[in-house]
Write a protein that binds this DNA or RNA. Structure first.
Length: 822
RNA sequence: GCCGAAGUGGCGGAACUGGGAGACGCAGCGGACUCAAAAUCCGCCACCCGAUUCGGGUGUGAGGGUUCGACUCCCUCCUUCGGCACCA
């Protein structure tokens, strides 16, 4: 071990212990100036790599910075402790998921402490503990009371490998979202629990406009995910039984061009429509075949559309035309009403389908000055045009036509203005063991009965022999758990065997942090309202359309319940770029990456922190390399050496600005500039340039000759404070070295004097015809006239303007002089 | 296909509101120290042309435009990345 290694190891351990013993990061229960710094809590995976801890380092910079500014900071941490990896480990190695999870938590926690990240561990939240998940169950019951939790039979996403259903947000390109699994997702008809997030679709959309500090890309992704679209629901009539069947369209202007209808294979009507026709057998075979196909295949780009005629017809309400009903694989049961009106002339999908099955094509919109003929068309015409073959609407521009036909449909009572969302209700039940039991009881006599609040928590049984999923929940086979009595009639009943999606846990954990020990409620509204909204939330972009929608949804529901004052959970959201190593994403399972333990052992936590902060802007992806480590290691060594060489410096040196030497004055100004830069950049989430500013100032300190100067001593004192949020161990060490006894993190962060952020002289570049030709150095406050006069005395300016006429002179105060000649 | 973001030296990156392009760091080159090497320190370091300190030209993906002046604003295009993707 080198001397250097010995010294930082000792130093870092010493101050980590010091902070813990002094309780520096304990939360003030009665905050006066609150600041809530939140990092997305992790799945406990054991040893942490730099990709894991980058978020936490950034959170800790904000934590320490705001603390030094005198805020009461809440900076908590917890564990998203339910989930499949624990269960899979149990299946593979026979370790109980709980044991596996808790061991991983201990290892991860040690790693976090090694990095010097200052959390209030008293507020730690672990979601697999009954004192947490009982409130999942409590919230589920509240959602149920409000009609926001319901059960229905539907085709759901089924992961054949995990043997469980998945939410839409957990299907990535047709595959299971878990990177360790990634099996193609299938459709399966099951009765499952849902949260009615669609009821909040409009509010979730509108709320985005009230989040000016959220990254634009996240808001755009959420808008697309919610997918609002305005249109009309038009009632078609089923010829064979006279029933009205509404369809959704955004193009009512093409209503006269409908030549067939298409029904989704998984729509409820699809099962029965062909009954009694000669097509019955063919239709049912088609449906079976289509639904067995993995979703990824079905939605793949370029897949040819397929369908089958049902033998049934619908009546178009605007012209009474009889149009055939098909079942078509490109129609989605989950969007609109599950059936569409098809207009081959003006929709490309309908066009392709019509061509394949020889269905007539009817033009109802002509391009300006042109007449389309169906037999010569090679693609649908989807642009603007003039309406034809559309009865009283002929001759209208189709945009106008949309309005006119909609008004007509509404007036006639055969259509309604409707908004449709792409967002679907959130499927939350999982057929897995390691999760929160759903607090519902199935009674043969009373039906579905909620577990009374007083009986919570419904404990997850621990004495389970076999965790292997077999298509239904493991809990269904645990006799002691599944058999119970009905709270209503007292008769024999069964518990719901499913557990909740772990995204339920993470939808409200940030409220629990405000009141982590409450055993009467998930949290006391008073305490939550003291801290919310979260001031800064730090995490990964992969949660843009999952967790970051769910936690907004929960916040709105809890707001409606009167439990939280805010309607949106967080003010600033920061998305952190991934850390790669040799071009590939760091991964625990693939053992690829840079690990906290060994790295800190060799280089120290401060080096690890600075490496990540200095490499790139935080939101950008970075590729970890030894070169990055070299730069910040030298920076730290240069700081060390400077303070070593100037051991005798005194703190809080006093001096009068007017008595300073020219060099001292310059150093003082550079100090003020640096303080301003560090503050501005830190608050703008630009740690790379904040650190660059510190490096520049360190270079100035080295270049400064009068080491006995009071200003120099003052600058050394301030520099340590500026460094503290980024390299806390080194800063604390130096702070004590220069004679302080209390922690640096209770010291006010430096402020700057705006008047002292610019030098007494300024440099004015001179442009001639847009090219930089010379520079003037003049005292600040030099008038425009003087500058112009000096400029025309300048050798270069004379040279370039000789024999030419100056046509224009532009002076930008204190910035630049621009001369234009002919 | 639709939506969004981004293209700057050998590399990571910087540039406030339209005003000195390349801060800071890495790598590289030259020098000091050393018997030597490492470490450290000092200096150079966008490209091209000419020279000796210096001078001139070009330059922020490509092309055009606005402007005294464009990495920054506008138009067209190219490339890369991310999201959505048969959404009626």
């Amino acid at each position: 071990m080198t001397n250097n290694q010995a010294s930082f190891k000792q130093r870092e351990a010493k101050w980590q212990k010091f902070w813990e013993e002094k309780g520096i990061f304990k939360t003030n229960p009665n905050p006066k100036r609150k600041y809530y710094v939140l990092v997305m809590y992790p799945y406990p995976s054991g040893d942490l790599h730099m990709g894991h801890v980058k978020n936490y380092v950034i959170g800790d910079v904000i934590n320490r910075y705001r603390k030094m500014q005198g805020y009461d900071v809440l900076h908590p941490f917890g564990w998203d402790a339910f989930g499949l990896p624990a269960e899979n480990a149990a299946i593979a190695h026979g370790i109980h998921p709980e044991k596996w999870t808790k061991e991983n938590i201990e290892i991860s926690k040690r790693n976090l402490k090694l990095m010097g990240i200052g959390y209030d561990w008293d507020a730690e939240v672990t979601t697999c503990e009954p004192d947490y998940y009982r409130w999942n169950q409590w919230l589920f019951l509240k959602f149920y009371e409000r009609g926001l939790a319901y059960r229905k039979e539907a085709y759901v996403n089924w992961c054949p490998k995990c043997q469980t259903v998945l939410a839409n947000e957990q299907v990535v390109e047709g595959h299971c979202y878990r990177s360790a699994c990634a099996a193609p997702v299938e459709k399966k008809k099951l009765t499952q629990w849902f949260f009615k997030i669609t009821e909040y679709a409009q509010r979730l959309l509108d709320g985005l406009d009230k989040l000016p500090h959220w990254p634009e890309n996240v808001k755009t992704m959420q808008r697309n995910w919610i997918g609002r679209s305005e249109g009309v629901e038009v009632d078609f009539t089923l010829e064979h039984n006279g029933q009205k069947f509404p369809i959704f369209t955004t193009r009512p202007d093409t209503l006269y061009g409908v030549t067939f209808m298409a029904l989704a294979p998984d729509a409820p009507l699809a099962e029965t429509i062909a009954q009694g026709t000669k097509y019955e057998k063919e239709v049912s075979e088609f449906i079976t075949r289509i639904l067995k196909r993995p979703e990824i295949e079905r939605i793949a780009v370029g897949t040819e559309k397929e369908g089958v005629f049902t033998g049934r017809y619908a009546i178009n309400p605007v012209n009474g035309e009889r149009v055939p009903i098909y079942i078509a694989d490109f129609v989605l049961a989950s969007y609109g009403t599950g059936m569409i009106m098809a207009v081959p002339a003006h929709d490309q999908r309908d066009f392709e389908f019509a061509k394949k099955y020889n269905i007539p094509i009817k033009v109802v919109i002509n391009p300006p000055g042109e007449n389309l003929r169906p037999e010569t068309m090679t693609a649908a015409y989807v642009d603007e045009g003039i309406m034809v073959n559309s009865g009283q609407f002929n001759g209208l521009n189709n945009q106008e036509g949309i309005e006119k036909i909609t008004d007509y449909l509404v007036a006639k009572g055969i259509g309604r203005r409707t908004v449709n969302y792409r967002l679907k209700d959130w499927l939350i039940s999982r057929q897995r063991y390691w999760g929160t039991p759903i607090p519902m009881i199935h009674c043969e006599r009373c039906g579905i009965v909620p577990v009374p609040e007083k009986d919570l928590p419904v404990l997850l049984p621990k004495d389970v022999k076999d965790y292997t999923p077999k298509g239904k929940s493991v809990l269904a086979g645990v006799e002691s758990f599944i058999n119970t009595t009905c709270p209503n009639c007292g008769g024999k009943a069964k518990r719901d065997p499913d557990t909740m999606d772990t995204f339920v846990d993470s939808s409200w954990y940030f409220f629990r942090y405000c009141d982590p020990k409450n055993d009467k409620l998930p949290f006391d509204p008073k305490k939550v309202n003291q801290w919310l909204p979260v001031d800064e939330y730090i995490g990964g972009i992969e949660h843009a359309c999952g967790h970051l929608i769910f936690f907004r949804f929960f916040t709105k529901v809890l707001h409606d319940m009167g439990m939280v004052a805010v309607d949106e959970p967080c003010d600033y959201l920061w998305m952190i770029g991934m850390v790669k190593y040799k071009g590939a994403v760091m991964s625990s399972s693939k053992k690829h990456g840079v690990w906290v333990g060994p790295f800190v052992e060799e280089h120290g936590a401060d080096v690890a922190r600075l490496t990540m902060l200095f490499a790139t802007p935080p939101e950008k992806e970075m590729d970890w390399s030894d070169e990055l480590v070299t730069g910040v290691t030298r920076f730290i060594q240069r700081i060390n050496r400077l303070y070593e060489e100037n051991k005798n410096i005194i703190q809080n040196s006093e001096f009068e600005i007017q008595n300073l030497s020219e060099a001292e004055r310059r150093l003082y100004i550079r100090l003020n500039q640096t303080i301003k830069k560090v503050i501005t950049d830190t608050e703008a989430f630009q740690y790379n340039t904040a650190i660059a500013g510190l490096m520049e100032f360190l270079n100035d300190l080295y270049a400064f000759n009068d080491k006995k100067s009071q200003v120099f001593a003052f600058a050394l004192n301030r520099f340590v404070l500026l460094l503290a949020p980024f390299a806390p161990h080194l800063a604390e060490e130096l702070w004590h070295q220069i004679g302080n006894e209390k922690t640096i993190f209770l010291e006010p962060f430096p402020t700057y004097d705006e008047k002292a952020t610019s030098f007494a002289e300024m440099t004015i570049p001179i442009q001639i015809n847009g090219k930089l030709r010379s520079k003037l150095v003049v005292p600040v406050g030099t008038t425009e006239e003087t500058i112009k006069k000096l400029a025309f005395e300048d050798k270069k300016v004379i040279e370039y303007t000789q024999g030419k006429t100056v046509t224009r002179i532009i002076y930008i105060p204190n910035k630049l002089l621009s001369i234009v000649t002919n």
